Amino acid sequence: MNAFTGALPAGAPAAGFRPDPALEELEIDLLLEALYGRYGLDYRSHDRALLRRRLQEVVARRELATLSRLQEQVLHQPGAALDVTRALAVPAARLFDRPEWARRQRTALSDSLRPTALPKVWLPEAAGVGEAWTLAILLAEEKLYGRTEVFATLASDELLAEVREATLPAAQLQEAQQDYEASGGGGRLADYFEVSDGRARLLPRLRERITWLQYCLVTDGSFNEFHAILCCRALPDFGPVLRQRVLRLFRDSLALFGVIGLDRELDGTDAAASDYQPLFDDGAWYKRIR
C-alpha cells in the first residue's frame, strides 16, 4: 500500500484489508457522481448503508481492490455501469412473492378502481416483470384489467430494455402457485402464460395493458394523474430526505379518493400524511381524502 495515497494496486485486496471509512465515503461520493454525470442515474440520496453494502458486493464480485477501481471501470469498461445499476436497483420480484400484500392489493384496487371509467395505476421503480405481471393477473381476475392502464417505470434505460423483452423460468409458475392461491387466486397461474423452451411470458392480451417508461423518482416531476400508486419495494432504498420528496410526488400524482400502497405505515412526520385515510386496521394502504 502507498503510505501517502492509501491506494492499493489493481486486483483483489489483501487478506484482512479494511479500507479507511472516511476514504471509502469519498470513494462512494465520487462513484455516485460518476454514475450521475456519465449516465444520468442519481443514487446520491439513497440510503447510505444500503448503497455501501451493495457497492461492496460489486467490488468483491468483480475482484477489485477498491471502490475507486470500480469507478474507473464504470467510466471506461463496457458493462460495468450496468452491473452497478443492477446491484443498486430494486431487486427483481418473483411472482406473488408477497401473498399477503397481494391479497390486500386485490381488495384495495377492486374497491377503488371499479367506479372509475378508465383507471390508471403506477408502479414506480417496478421490481421487474414479476411485480408488474402479478398486478396484471390480479386486475384481470377482478375484471378490471380490460379498462385499466398500468404504467411501470424505471430510471435506467438499460433495465427498461431488459424488462420489455423479459421472460421467467417456466418452473417458477408451479413454484408460485401456492403463493398465488394465498393471495386469493382461484385458478391455475400457468393459464396466464405462454411457455416456450422452458421460459414463460405473460399472455399478450395482458402484457399489452402495461406501458414501460423511463422515469426517475429522484429528479422527475409528476407526469400523470393516477388512481392507484403501488410502491412497497423502492422506498426502503431512499434516504430520509428523498423519501419525503417522493411521498410529496406521490400525493401530487394521486387522484382524489385514489389509493396508495407503501412499504410501511405513515406517521405524522411524513409528507402529506394528513391527506390520507387508512384502508385497513393495519398495513400501509391509504386512500387520498383531501
Rank of each mutant, 00 (worst) to 15 (best):
L95Y: 03
P115M: 12
Q172A: 15
P169V: 04
S112M: 12
L113R: 01
A92K: 00
S110K: 09
S196G: 02
L139E: 03
A92E: 01
A117C: 00
G130N: 06
E141W: 08
D97S: 11
G185C: 08
A200F: 06
T167A: 11
D157E: 15
L118S: 15
A190I: 06
L154D: 02
T134M: 08
E165S: 14
A140S: 10
V150T: 10
Y192F: 15
L189F: 10
W101M: 04
P204C: 10
R106A: 15
R104A: 14
R199K: 07
E175W: 04
A92I: 00
R106M: 14
T134Q: 04
R199S: 04
A171P: 00
G198V: 01
Y145W: 14
Q177R: 08
V150K: 01
L154K: 02
V129L: 08
E175C: 02
V150R: 01
D191I: 05
A155S: 14
E100C: 04
E141N: 06
Q174M: 04
P115N: 10
G185Q: 03
R114A: 12
D197R: 03
G187H: 09
R199V: 02
Y145L: 14
L159W: 05
Q177I: 10
R147D: 09
L203H: 07
T116E: 12
R201V: 13
P124T: 06
L139K: 01
P204V: 13
L159K: 02
G130T: 05
S156D: 14
S112N: 10
L202C: 07
S110M: 11
E131R: 02
A200C: 08
D191L: 10
R207N: 01
L159A: 12
